[in-house]
C-alpha cells in the first residue's frame, strides 16, 4: 500500500464541484427530508465558490442532482435575467455541462430564489428553493436549540399568538413573504421568502420541492401531493397579494404576480414577475407559435 492508494487521481474539479462525500451526505439528508415533510434536517453544508447567503444551499442541492442531461433553469425574483440568476446558471453549467433553459416547461430542475413559476410544474420536475432562514419560529424564538424543541413538541402556540396580535393591531395578518405553513399536518415550515401568491402552489403539487439554507445548514422538503396549509384562523381567510387584476405594461400578461415599478409622475406601472412567462406572452403577440403550460392561477384566481 502506498500513499497514492489512499487518495484519488488529482482532478482540477470534481464533477458538479462537490466531492463524492459531500454529495452522499446531501443525498442522505434529502431522503430524510422527503420522509418527514417540512422538518428541517441539519447538514454540514460545504463551502462552495459562491458567498453564503447567495444561494449556496440551493446550489449544493443542484450540484448533487445534476447530470449532463439535466435541463436547468435558474430564476431570482422570478427573473431568469437577473445578475445572480445568470451567475448561478453559468456556474451550474460550468461544473456539470448541464444544458440550461429559460422555459419552465422544458426544465428538469429549477433553482429559484423567492418565486415559484406561474406555469404548473409536472411530476418529474424538481424545484429547489434557496432559503435564507429555514426557521419559521425565528421571529418568536431566535435560539435554534429552543426552536428545535418547540418543533419536537409541535409547540406552535407562540406562532398563532403572533398572528393573532397582528390581526388585533393592524386588522390583518402582516406577514408578507415567507408565510409560515403547516406541512402534512405536523411541521410548521417556512416556504422560503416566496410571496403569499406562491404558497398555495406547494399544496398537493405534483412536483418535488427541496428547500435548502446553505448558511444555516438546514434543508427541508415538500414531496408531491403533500398538504401545505398557511397558518390562518377559521374566520380570517388566507389572502394572497392583490395582483389578480393587474396587467403587465410590457407584455399585456394579466392575472399574475407583478413587480411594481414607480413612475416619475408618482404613479406605478406593473411588470410580470415571471420574466419568461412575459417573454412568451410578447412572442405570442408578435405572431410566434408559443407553448404555454397550464397555470396555477387562472384569470387572477387560484384554480381549485
Amino acid at each position: 500500500m502506498s500513499l497514492k492508494s489512499l487518495t484519488r487521481d488529482w482532478e482540477p474539479m470534481s464533477y458538479g464541484f462537490l466531492d463524492a462525500s459531500a454529495k452522499r451526505e446531501i443525498r442522505r439528508k434529502m431522503l430524510k427530508a422527503i420522509a418527514v415533510p417540512g422538518c428541517q434536517m441539519p447538514y454540514a453544508s460545504r463551502e462552495v465558490p459562491m458567498a453564503r447567503g447567495w444561494g449556496t444551499g440551493g446550489l449544493q442541492i443542484s450540484c448533487t442532482l445534476l447530470n449532463p442531461k439535466t435541463k436547468v433553469k435558474v430564476i431570482d425574483q422570478g427573473a431568469d435575467d437577473s445578475v445572480n440568476a445568470a451567475s448561478i446558471r453559468r456556474f451550474l453549467a460550468r461544473v456539470s455541462g448541464a444544458p440550461t433553459t429559460l422555459d419552465t416547461l422544458e426544465a428538469d430542475l429549477i433553482q429559484s430564489r423567492h418565486r415559484i413559476p406561474e406555469e404548473k410544474l409536472r411530476d418529474n420536475q424538481v424545484l429547489v428553493l434557496q432559503v435564507p432562514n429555514p426557521e419559521p419560529l425565528r421571529p418568536v424564538q431566535p435560539n435554534m436549540s429552543i426552536a428545535r424543541q418547540m418543533h419536537a413538541d409541535a409547540d406552535y402556540g407562540r406562532m398563532w399568538l403572533q398572528l393573532y396580535e397582528q390581526i388585533l393591531r393592524a386588522g390583518r395578518v402582516m406577514q408578507g413573504a415567507s408565510y409560515p405553513s403547516l406541512v402534512n399536518g405536523r411541521f410548521v415550515m417556512t416556504p422560503s421568502p416566496i410571496p403569499r401568491w406562491d404558497v398555495p402552489k406547494l399544496h398537493m403539487a405534483k412536483h418535488l420541492t427541496i428547500l435548502s439554507a446553505g448558511r444555516e445548514k438546514r434543508l427541508h422538503a415538500v414531496p408531491p401531493f403533500t398538504r401545505v396549509e398557511p397558518l390562518v384562523f377559521d374566520d380570517v381567510p388566507y389572502r394572497v397579494e392583490e395582483h389578480g387584476a393587474l396587467t403587465c405594461t410590457r407584455s399585456g400578461a394579466r392575472g399574475f404576480f407583478m413587480n411594481e415599478i414607480p413612475q416619475d409622475d408618482g404613479s406605478s406601472a406593473f411588470e410580470i414577475s415571471d420574466s419568461e412567462y412575459g417573454v412568451k406572452t410578447l412572442r405570442q403577440r408578435d405572431g410566434e407559435a408559443v407553448t404555454f403550460g397550464d397555470t396555477w392561477y387562472k384569470h387572477g384566481e387560484m384554480a381549485q
Partner: peptide, 27 residues
Amino acid sequence: ESSGFCNHFKLPHYVTFQSSLDAMRDA
C-alpha cells in the same frame, strides 16, 4: 457565513418587498 449574509442584502429583494407593501397598504 456572517460576511456572506451581510453582503446578500445587496441582492434584489423586490418580491418580498412587494409582498410587504401589499399587506401594509391593505392595513
